[in-house]
Amino acid sequence: MTRGANALRALLEVRGLRAARGGREVLRGVSFDVAAGERVVVLGANGSGKTTLLRAIAGLDAVDGGEVRAEGVGFVLQQGALFPHLSVLQNTLLALRVVKGMANDDALRAAKAALARVAIERFDAMPHELSGGQQQRVAIARALALEPRVLLLDEPTSALDPAATKDIEETLRALSATGIAILIVTHDMPFAESVATRTVTLRDGVVETR
């Protein structure tokens, strides 16, 4: 699966993004694209604005300028952030029912399909009964259920053991093979080197060009 990124249409376009946090201008005109099938890892020192960038793209925080163009963004937050009071299936169903207003049967089918893509079968398990890696995969399925074209992941392997990290990597490879654009923020260098088709480095609030 090594297709030239430039040959494909960009699913995520970030243009001149500017954002300040705590009175400091963290992003000072960030621009880059992520195309279908790409797995782009954002690198940068602590405080370089990686998480701010993801949250801005996901629309969680306001920005001060610039533009984000994306066709359906799914965001997997740190450690998955599953809803602890809902089962695996309920976590995946919630947005389908509440946001998309899908009928029960349709929602159930979509949720199970999304969980199948990350190889999770314990539908009725509660999050705390799962391993960290499984929780991360359920979180990915929860985002996938809404059929995003772009998937954002914030530190998907933090606190995971090597085997679970490997599982996540394989899951992400399989997803990008289906044409999803993936953008990952991580401190886990071995994982980054292994999973990335391309890296983007943030320095002084802009994308470093080499």
């Binding site: 965001f75 599953l82 509440v98």
Partner: peptide, 29 residues
């Protein structure tokens, strides 16, 4: 945890939906 609000918003839930389906059930427990 704050991240529960973010996770719900990232899924597209409105503030009212987030409170009803995510925050209150956890807060009550």
């Amino acid at each position: 945890p704050r991240i529960q609000w973010d996770a719900a918003r990232a899924l597209g839930l409105s503030r009212a939906q987030t409170i009803r389906h995510v925050i209150v059930p956890q807060g009550v427990r």
